[in-house]
């Protein structure tokens, strides 16, 4: 399911135009990221948890050139599905 299909389905359910639905989704992702930026955990009942995790810096080696690179630390967004979502995906 690509974005177009997703927005189409969403707008049908909300009984709005696809443009409005897309705007809502954008607003949602913005709100989500602003909440996550503060290091908060976002928990959605029956869906899952969005959480920012810190990855430490590390040294990687390019196997072909033996070149060593220092990868800086970074913050990544992780998603952990809820038990219900997991079960649902497992049913098939």
């Amino acid at each position: 399911m690509n974005n177009k299909e997703f927005i189409g389905e969403l707008s049908q359910r909300l009984q709005t135009t696809p443009q409005d639905a897309q705007a809502l989704v954008n607003a949602f992702s913005e709100t989500l990221s602003s909440v996550l930026e503060e290091g908060d955990v976002l928990n959605f009942q029956n869906f899952g948890v969005f959480e920012v995790k810190k990855k430490l810096e590390r040294i990687i080696v390019n196997p072909s050139t033996k070149q060593r690179m220092l990868v800086p630390p970074k913050l990544t967004l992780s998603f952990k599905p809820s038990v219900r979502l997991k079960e649902q995906s497992n049913e098939e």
């Binding site: 399911m1 997703f6 389905e9 969403l10 359910r13 949602f28 992702s29 989500l32 995906s89």
Partner: peptide, 20 residues
């Protein structure tokens, strides 16, 4: 939103949401 994601996952395993 979540409902659609779930149904989409069930239907064809991937759901792509722009900007998200």
């Amino acid at each position: 939103f979540f409902d659609v994601v779930e149904t989409g996952l069930r239907a064809d395993k991937t759901v792509k949401v722009k900007n998200f």
